[in-house]
Nucleic acid binder design. Structure first.
Lengths: 154, 154
DNA sequence: AGCGATTAAATTGTGCACAATGTAAAAGAT
DNA sequence: ATCTTTTACATTGTGCACAATTTAATCGCT
């Protein structure tokens, strides 16, 4: 009811640093949630979740990786990856094997079925880009900025 | 086979639509996770999680809202909000009351303590913006694009 | 060789995010 | 007025994300 404490008398609009509409963080949070929902529709027929799909992207690029290498690529720790990788193993897409040379390590390898899944996923990015309803140029610029944001000074 | 216009530096390589580095979705996912981590450091002393903070932003802007109104503002359903709001109630920041006029509805009201929390949070956005290490202009443009992405054709 | 420090992954516990379902109240239809 | 439909929220179950801790293996140092 009362005007903002720091508002000069009846100024047009005192800037509110906590207004939801001003938060980059909320825009980022809401956009990420929405895009994950878009992917869910595409991935559900394949029986994959979004983080599982990202994990497969990493392995399709280079197979036979350590848990830590996958985690490095995705910025995820073993607390997230271990159960996820166990589910991918149960689904028959990867195999987890203790490294004989260093028993602390666990190697992640794609099965034939895991490699075959790639063909079923190859059209997904284009379909999602289409659903986003923004010009390609904007999406490319956006990805650039977000990558900087994600990798900066960690 | 044709080299993508947006990847001039590796024009020799065939474009891989599933390469992790090409995924806007991954950039978005990683950026969102990183920003939430930045907030976690700021919010931990206040005893708040990031979605709880977003919920308070909504209520600080306008108090005495229905669960559904909060959910509308944040694009979250009751499955997420009900337990979150119960935790905010346990923390003494909000009160949940059944609407007497319509018993289906639950009104969310800030407590004195909930309103007081605002003063402790008011500096957070500026500190985060600083930590992001990108020029303000870029951040403003980014928020604009993300908002479009989040709200488009849902 | 012996041993503390480091490393790799797993485990435990909390809190989202969401699909699916349930419950009860209110609104509409006949 | 009774019955169907819709609405608002709660509940259940799955799967992340991450902090904190644990376990076990390897490394580094003397």
């Amino acid at each position: 009811m009362t005007p903002e404490p720091d508002a000069p008398e009846n100024a047009a609009k005192p800037f509110d640093p906590l207004a939801l509409d001003h938060q980059l963080c909320f825009a980022l949070y809401a956009a990420a949630n929405r895009v994950i929902r878009l992917y869910r529709d595409q991935l559900e027929p394949l029986g994959l979740t979004y983080p599982q799909y990202l994990t497969l992207l990493v392995l399709w690029e280079r197979d036979d990786r350590l848990v830590g290498e996958v985690g490095e690529a995705l910025s995820l720790d073993s607390g997230t990856l271990t159960p996820l990788l166990k589910r991918l193993e149960t689904a028959g897409l990867v195999i987890r094997t203790r490294d004989a040379a260093d028993e602390r390590r666990v190697r992640i390898t794609l099965t034939k079925q895991g490699r075959a899944m790639r063909a079923k996923a190859v059209d997904i990015p284009a379909r999602i880009a289409c659903e986003m309803g923004l010009p390609l140029e904007t999406l490319v610029q956006l990805k650039q900025t977000l990558t900087t944001l994600a990798t900066d000074q960690d």
